[in-house]
């Protein structure tokens, strides 16, 4: 009886260990498939980590001006945290370090019923943010290309 309990505990422990090994340090988004042609200078083109952060702040500024999408982001609350997570995500998809600590894109958007129109509205905000931050159009397209495959999990409606 006692022995079987121990073996059960052991088994559970081993399972947990295996599961932990299978997961990255953060259980969130991992890199998308390599996006064709994103240059190694992509993060630098945005002005490094600091530049990416500034861009994300501009992105949220334009998102909050757009009635088609601002309510979705407001409902989430804690915009500062959203900006921090997005900065990590954008750096990662541009080929920078993978420090993303948020939920996966599919988990984060599953229940929101995001439409293609709303996704495109964020893309428009992204271009506006690039213009505002004097990031070159071609560099901006690298980021759009890197985020584009997320349409498949973000747009659910």
């Amino acid at each position: 009886m006692k022995r079987s309990k121990i073996s059960l505990a052991l088994a559970t422990g081993v399972t947990l260990l295996v599961a932990a090994a299978a997961q990255p340090a953060f259980a969130g988004e991992s890199k998308t498939k390599p996006i064709m042609g994103i240059p190694s200078s992509a993060v630098a083109d945005f002005g490094g980590a600091y530049g990416v952060h500034n861009w994300v702040e501009s992105l949220f500024y334009y998102i909050m001006l757009d009635n088609r999408i601002n309510y979705i982001f407001k409902e989430f609350g804690n915009v500062d945290r959203q900006i921090a997570l997005n900065t990590q995500l954008e750096q990662m998809v541009l080929g920078g370090p993978n420090n993303y600590q948020g939920a996966s894109m599919s988990a984060a958007h599953a229940d929101l019923g995001i439409t293609m129109t709303q996704f495109n509205a964020v893309v428009e905000a992204a271009y506006n943010a690039c213009e505002r931050n004097e990031i070159k159009y071609y560099a901006c397209n690298d980021l759009i290309a890197a985020l584009a495959p997320f349409t498949r999990v973000i747009v659910t409606k």
């Binding site: 390599p34 996006i35 064709m36 584009a148 495959p149 349409t151």
Partner: peptide, 10 residues
């Protein structure tokens, strides 16, 4: 297909 958003495939 999607001309714009399938940047991870040909």
């Amino acid at each position: 297909g999607d001309a714009v958003y399938t940047s991870d495939s040909w």
